[in-house]
Amino acid sequence: MHAISWEVSGSQGFETAWVQLGEGVLRARGRAVGTVPEPYWISYALETGDGFVTRRLTVTAETGDGARELDLRHDGQGGWTANGEPLPAVDGALDCDLGLCPLTNTMPVLRHGLHREPGEREFLMAWVSVPDLAVRPSRQTYTHLGPGRVRYASGDFRSDVEFDEEGYVLDYPSLATRLTAR
């Protein structure tokens, strides 16, 4: 297990994730603090199954209004629940995408080797907004631009993201920049 820290410009804060990467699986726990859109603390745990497909994301968000919790689960067949309630709007998604969290860009990139090999993939994500922890569908496209460079696009937003050899974000313009070496 190793720690990765980012300065998260999108939240005017910081994040550290303790990550364990194995053959086709990823486990992580992380903490983030931000000030945009309001001051908050986030604690999360992420686990994937084979092929880096999300199995479970648990998140606790604390703001001045108190704490919220999310237990987001994927059944491995395309179905999702949030705190036990079905989420049909994200059925078919393989990945979660925790808002303002550079770690969750790793799973689709690793699954398809997009940081190493040419290709373009479109995804439906179970996107979790921060700090309210609402889950919404998000259509995203990842396009290989060159070794370690992948264009992320969703709606009108585009960013050319730099990944290290292992598939972790080094620089995500307008979102985050890594502070520590792996």
Rank of each mutant, 00 (worst) to 15 (best):
M1Y: 09
M1R: 13
M1E: 13
A3Y: 10
A3D: 15
I4R: 14
I4N: 06
W6I: 04
E7L: 09
S9Q: 13
S9H: 11
F14R: 14
E15F: 02
A17Y: 02
V19Q: 10
V19A: 12
G22A: 15
E23S: 15
V25A: 12
V25N: 06
L26Q: 04
R29F: 11
R29Y: 11
A32T: 05
V33P: 00
T35A: 11
V36K: 12
V36Q: 12
P37I: 04
P37H: 04
E38N: 00
E38L: 12
P39N: 06
W41N: 04
Y44S: 13
L46I: 11
L46N: 02
E47H: 07
E47Q: 15
T48W: 07
G51Q: 13
G51C: 10
G51H: 13
V53M: 11
R55N: 12
L57E: 10
T58L: 13
T60M: 14
A61P: 02
E62T: 14
D65V: 02
G66V: 06
L70F: 03
L70Q: 03
D71A: 02
D75K: 06
G76I: 07
G78R: 09
G78S: 03
G78T: 10
W80L: 05
N83S: 01
G84D: 02
P86R: 05
P86Y: 05
A89R: 09
A89Q: 12
V90T: 04
D91G: 11
L94M: 14
L94G: 15
D95V: 05
D95S: 05
D97F: 01
G99Y: 00
G99H: 01
L100V: 03
P102C: 08
L103K: 08
L103T: 06
T104Q: 10
T104G: 06
T106R: 08
M107R: 08
R111V: 09
R111S: 13
H112W: 13
G113C: 11
G113F: 08
R116V: 04
R116Y: 02
E117Y: 12
E120S: 15
E122W: 00
E122D: 14
F123N: 07
F123I: 09
M125A: 13
M125F: 14
M125I: 03
A126M: 08
A126V: 02
W127P: 00
S129E: 10
P131C: 07
D132H: 11
L133P: 04
A134D: 07
A134G: 01
R136V: 12
P137C: 01
P137R: 03
S138W: 10
R139E: 13
Q140H: 07
T141D: 07
Y142K: 05
T143R: 15
H144P: 11
H144I: 08
G146T: 02
G148V: 09
G148M: 05
V150P: 01
V150Y: 06
Y152K: 05
A153Y: 03
S154W: 01
G155I: 04
F157Y: 15
S159P: 00
D160E: 14
V161R: 04
E162D: 09
E162Q: 12
F163C: 00
F163K: 01
F163I: 09
E165P: 02
E166W: 04
G167S: 04
V169Q: 03
V169S: 01
L170W: 00
D171V: 13
P173I: 09
P173L: 13
S174L: 12
S174H: 13
T177H: 15
T177W: 02
L179R: 15
T180W: 07
A181W: 08
